[in-house]
Computed example of a mutant assay.
Amino acid sequence: MQKISVVVPVYYNEGSLALLHQRLSDCATVQGEFAFEFIFVDDGSGDRSFQVLQEISRKDTRVKVIKLVRNFGSTNAQLAGIGYATGDAVVIISADLQDPPELIHEMVPLWKKGTRMVFAARNERDDPLSTRLPAGVFNVLFRNFALKKYPRGGFDCFLIDRQVVNVVIQCAEKNTHLPGLLVWTGFEYELIYYHRQERQHGKSRWNLTRKLKYFADAFTAFSYLPLRLCSALGVFLAFVGLVYSLVVLLAKFFGNIPVEGWTALMVVVLITAGMQLLMLGIVGEYLWRNFDQSRHRPLYLVDQVIQQPSPEAIPAPAPLGEVSSGVAPSTRN
């Protein structure tokens, strides 16, 4: 019997976990021809998420709980779950129930037909404008300037075949953008569309800082456009400076230079200095990510792995040191 692994990154989601587990169990019942495992990755939650997951795991032997030492970010939590997944296909879904678990019923038939990747793209969303606007801008920019085949509405929920899972594990990229990485692999994918629902449980932790890092990670991982813009801006400023220098020399030659004050000089200095610092910052983003990758630190560290009924049922972490922690986690029933 083929197995489907459902990976759920968890971060301050205690209010939705019981209902999420129930809906996932209902999906598994409908998809009775497949075995299921539910992998919940607690990414350093500060609420009772881990305690709730412990209670759920005691009642359902399909549930595997991975507790990370601290918060490593949503992408790394997803990679942790993928590393521990044993299924022939892996589904990634959020814990806040904004992405309905019932999408599994649409994704699995497409996978059965041979599609290696199925993406659930949003055609509508009930999020506030402060969330919809940045997401829309990012999706447009990323599709036009990074990956042309990236779905227009973006996606966070998806199903990937074991072959794709192995590629993701092999890449072992730090500071990556997982949806972009999947599109980059080049495997053909199918799209399904859904209405992203309003959040009913808890408060989103997706603040401005995380959004900016997400934006920077995505573009530095899959586009050299920021560097090209720096080069173009540098050429433009150099050209403007050359033209202005010629104008000044001609004015000096014909004696038409008036008494100059500080205003124009300070404007030029501040603008050019600001542009230089901006370009250095962009270059620094690329250099930092290369340096971070070269240190070969693990993407995440596992504190505990919990699964019923026995420790022998728990697979070892993914063999690549960059993906798994390299630290033997404690295992509890």
Rank of each mutant, 00 (worst) to 15 (best):
Glu173Lys: 14
Gln54Lys: 14
Asn144Phe: 08
Pro151Ala: 03
Ala18His: 08
Ile104Asp: 04
Gly15Trp: 05
Pro179Lys: 09
Tyr11Asn: 06
Gly281Lys: 01
Thr272Met: 09
Asn71Cys: 09
Gly154Thr: 03
Glu188His: 09
Arg199Ile: 09
Thr263Phe: 13
Asn333Ile: 15
Ser324Cys: 12
Ile192Met: 08
Leu103His: 07
Pro9Asp: 04
Gly32Gln: 02
Leu278Cys: 06
Val259His: 08
Leu320Ser: 13
Asp217Asn: 15
Arg48Thr: 11
Asp126Val: 00
Tyr224Pro: 08
Phe72Cys: 13
Leu19Asp: 10
Pro128Met: 00
Tyr300Asp: 10
Arg228Asn: 06
Pro109Ser: 10
Phe291Asp: 02
Ala273Trp: 10
Leu225Gln: 10
Gln293Asp: 14
Tyr286Phe: 15
Ala85Cys: 07
Met266Ala: 15
Gln200Val: 11
Arg23Tyr: 04
Val69Ser: 08
Arg289Ala: 00
Glu102Met: 07
Phe155Leu: 00
Val183Gly: 10
Tyr244His: 12
Met279Glu: 06
Arg295Leu: 15
Leu227Glu: 03
Gly274Trp: 03
Met117Arg: 08
Gly83Ala: 04
Glu188Met: 11
Thr272Trp: 07
Lys148Gly: 02
Val164Gly: 02
Leu208Phe: 13
Met1Gln: 09
Glu33Val: 03
Glu190Arg: 15
Asn290Val: 06
Leu159His: 03
Ser294Phe: 09
Phe38Lys: 04
Arg205Pro: 10
Arg70Cys: 08
Gln2Trp: 11
Ile66Thr: 03
Val269Phe: 14
Val235Phe: 13
Pro315Thr: 09
Asn207Cys: 12
Leu178Gln: 09
Val140Arg: 14
Ile92Gln: 11
Leu53Ile: 02
Leu242Phe: 14
Trp262His: 08
Gly73Leu: 02
Phe50Ser: 10
Asp292Gly: 00
Arg70Tyr: 08
Arg210Ala: 14
Pro258Tyr: 02
Asp96Met: 07
Phe236Asp: 12
Ser330Gly: 13
Val69His: 12
Arg205Lys: 14
Asp127Lys: 07
Glu102His: 11
Asp156Ile: 03
Gln163Val: 15
Pro315Ile: 07
Gln54Trp: 02
Val52Gln: 05
Gln200Lys: 14
Asn166Arg: 15
Ser74Gly: 08
Ile82Tyr: 07
Ala89Ser: 07
Lys67Val: 01
Met279Leu: 05
Val41Ala: 00
Lys3Phe: 03
Gly153Pro: 01
Ile39His: 04
Pro298Leu: 01
Pro329Lys: 00
Pro226Thr: 04
Tyr12Ser: 12
Thr75Arg: 15
Gln54Glu: 13
Pro151Lys: 01
Gly73Tyr: 06
Arg132Ser: 10
Ala264Asp: 14
